[in-house]
Amino acid sequence: MTLEILTSDSLSALRHGFFTRRGGASSGVFAGLNCGHGSSDQTEIVAINRARVADAMGVAADHLTGIHQVHSADVVTVTSPLDERPKADGMVTNTPGIALAVLTADCQPVLFADADAGVIGAAHAGWRGALDGVLDATIDAMIEIGAQRENIAAVIGPCISQQAYEVGPEFFEDFIAGDPENSRFFANGKEDRMQFDLPGFGLARLRAAGIGSAEWTRHCTYSDPDRFYSYRRTTHAQEADYGRLISAITL
């Protein structure tokens, strides 16, 4: 099966893609394009999957660059392929030939570009990272290496949608403690549960940062098991592990 790669017109000047699980070599609960070394999938199979992604991105396998994602607001500037993965959740570069890649399985994968300046970024933005400012920090890091704020385009890829994201009252309190206006990203659920709009929150943060454009591809990872891995869906199904989707961009 060939790879399925979702793209955006906003980033069309550069090679990029939000890869679905289709077209990979993994089997079992990981069936498809599992690109997560952190999973219990076979190491050599994950390497095959990542090599397919690198080929699709037009870079060498060791130039498909990732980080050790920890749900932080930390961002690294990449000038050459990384020998080790630093703990961070955002990356930026102005070096051609490097593909910045993030892994997700419900969290937001966000790709950024100022094509005119030749600056790109990628961020892994779960609720904690998004709340703590990883999207804003990625934009700031891009500007530090030559991007113009008003020329930056950002696209949120497949992630969990509000309909599938049930949270408790403590979660809600975390968000409104810093800004009561964040209540608009929550809808009433069953009993004391609420439904959180993760991509809506991400879009609001991106637009408030004053960049040129921001959008979401409108794909829900939880509700489409044939195309996407989902941590929450795996948890509900009591499966042993889950695959990781990859999203990447290169100059």
Rank of each mutant, 00 (worst) to 15 (best):
F185L: 05
G202H: 06
I98E: 08
A147P: 13
N34H: 01
A125R: 05
V119H: 03
A137F: 05
S12C: 10
N94P: 00
F186C: 04
S12L: 11
Y231G: 14
G28C: 13
R218I: 00
M1Q: 12
H236W: 09
C220G: 12
I98G: 13
Y242Q: 10
W127G: 09
S247P: 01
T79S: 15
V29L: 13
G17L: 05
N94C: 11
E181I: 07
V92T: 14
T7C: 05
R233H: 05
V76I: 15
S247D: 03
Q162D: 03
A248S: 05
L6W: 11
V167T: 09
Q148N: 10
V110W: 01
T2D: 11
Q195L: 15
A51S: 13
S10F: 07
G133Q: 04
G212Q: 07
L82K: 11
F186K: 02
S161R: 12
E170N: 13
G168A: 04
Q163T: 15
I176P: 00
H68M: 07
S247Q: 10
K87G: 14
A73W: 07
R149K: 10
A164V: 00
A115G: 04
I246C: 06
L206H: 01
C35D: 07
I120P: 10
Q69R: 10
V75W: 04
I156E: 00
E44A: 15
M57N: 07
C35G: 07
E84K: 11
H236F: 09
W127R: 07
V110Y: 01
E4G: 01
I145E: 09
L131I: 01
W216H: 13
F30T: 09
